[in-house]
Amino acid sequence: MSKASQQRAMRKLVFTLIGWVVGLLMAFPILWMALTAFKTERQAVETPPALFFHPTLESFATVLATTNYLRFVFNSVAIAGGATLLSVALALPCAYAMAFHPSPRTKGILMWMLSTKMMPAVGVLVPIYLLFRNLHLLDTRTGMIGIYTLMNLPIVIWMLYSFFRDVPHDIVEAGLLDGANTRQQILRLLLPLTAPGVAATILLNLVLCWNEAFWSINLTATNAAPLTAFIATFSSPEGLFWAKLSAASLLAVAPIMVVGLATQRHLVSGLTFGAVK
């Protein structure tokens, strides 16, 4: 081996070492939580903390038996899924029109949509809370779906728009000449072409809804509470039962983390509204 390539291999080894240390440190709380979830309550608080132990599903069983856990999971899935479906259904035709039939106002509308996303939730907490109370939407999944749809609609439109914009106009115009109507153009021509982008949009939206904690805590109670609100109840002395807390948290975090990590590439352009690609 030449000296230069030897040096390069050495460099790579050093960076590998530093990289793994940094990575493990960053993810440590998650890894620690995952580990604790498989301990008994007694093992969880033991010092020195055990790295190797006989794993048990006891804590998961306790969580499932003593709480309405599945109900919260169902609420999370229903709310995140419902809101995502609804916002994509609304955003598809909108982004399509903006990308393929832009008018002089399109850019202005896009920027305005972005600016609605800047409205801090807490600024409208009071009126939304009162509206929800009067319309009997407090602690309902329907209400939460509505809020999350509106909350993320600008992001969904922006992401879809940025993916659609990259599709050559000729293709859609060819469809137009073939007599395809708008719905056919979107469903048969556009969606197959932009499938990865649309999938990323859907996944990112699921992540954002799943992890949202301001509205879920303030607008739901026992009936429609998703996992974010459920985990918040562990802030009471419950939180001292580490194994139980870890098991509940792991169940709440794991599915969406898989989704999130799978979509991280598109996440960047989605969350920065296309400003960084």
Binding site: G19, V22, G23, I30, I217
Partner: peptide, 30 residues
């Protein structure tokens, strides 16, 4: 350049996907 870079990347990015209530409680209690 490093060995296993995709895995390291995942480890580093993972905290962003943890819901705020979970991360707060894990840090506070454990």
């Amino acid at each position: 350049p490093m060995h296993g870079r995709p895995v390291v990347r995942l480890l580093v990015i993972a905290p962003f996907f943890v819901m705020p209530t979970v991360s707060a409680l894990i840090w506070k209690n454990m």
